[in-house]
């Protein structure tokens, strides 16, 4: 059952960017995950103190091995340990994969618009991978908002898919620095830029938005104001500031 804590073996750890790492976890008897689900990770210190955090699954397979990508939050309790200290061969505990709402299923037929802010790409990557591995023909479009080109996760794979997949379009917006030769200067994401880079409302896309809370809130509001039905928008908030003021 998904509520039980299970032991996971750390089978890989590959830096994704300077501050993030993709971690492979093997769990006996695990049968993969739905695209978009997350797991909870529990760390226990040697005096019994525990901390639990959620991490989206990046992969989409029917496998005993799943991958997560963790971005280090300076001064965070759990993420610096997962990015810097955890080693292949270590064990930790996981619960899940859980969640039946922020998920994409290969039987879904609508076009899909994915909107990622920073590490919010993780569950959306799972959806892209599930979509590519399936026969599902509906068009997928990804808008990936990034501080800089170097901050992108899954760069090679997204570049290749963006060029070669007949059913995926990838667009980037950069908020602090842009790649060489990029046509526009870096700037804060605006509603105009957003709307110019996504499927229009009359394409009736299912939209998935993921990232820091403030990013998700802002983007979701813009979409609703621009005529996308609220019921077609699903959101996943990773935390951080926002919603308080």
């Amino acid at each position: 059952m998904s509520t039980l804590w299970r032991v996971a073996d750390v089978v890989s750890g590959v830096p994704e960017t300077e501050t993030s790492r993709t971690i492979g976890l093997r769990v006996d008897g695990l049968m993969g995950n739905l695209a978009g689900q997350h797991i909870d990770i529990r760390l226990t210190a040697d005096d019994g103190y525990t901390a639990v955090r959620s991490y989206s699954v990046a992969t989409a397979s029917m496998d005993e091995i799943i991958e997560i990508t963790v971005d280090e939050l300076a001064n965070g309790e759990v993420s610096p340990y997962l990015v810097r200290d955890l080693a292949v061969g270590d064990q930790l505990e996981i619960r899940g994969p859980v969640g039946g709402w922020f998920v994409w299923r290969p039987t879904d037929t609508n076009p899909v618009q994915l909107i990622a802010g920073g590490s919010g790409i993780v569950p959306l990557m799972s959806m892209i991978r599930a979509h590519e591995a399936s026969e599902n023909p509906s068009p997928f479009r990804l808008l990936y908002s990034l501080k800089s080109p170097e901050a992108g996760f899954y760069r090679e794979e997204l570049l290749t898919l963006g060029q070669q997949s007949p059913k995926l379009t990838v667009d980037y917006v950069y908020t602090r620095s842009v790649p060489q030769g990029w046509p526009t200067a870096p700037k804060r994401l605006t509603a105009e830029t957003l709307l110019a880079n996504i499927l229009p409302p009359d394409a009736t896309p299912d939209t998935f938005i993921c990232g820091q809370t403030i990013f998700v809130e802002t983007v979701a509001e813009w979409l609703v104001e621009s005529g996308y039905p609220a019921a077609s928008i699903k959101t996943e908030r990773f935390g951080g500031t926002g919603g308080t003021r």
């Binding site: 760390l43 226990t44 309790e77 340990y81 064990q91």
Partner: peptide, 12 residues
């Protein structure tokens, strides 16, 4: 009993 992560100290 949980799996111990010896390098993890937490911010209790």
């Amino acid at each position: 009993m949980g799996i111990i992560s010896s390098g993890f100290h937490g911010k209790r």
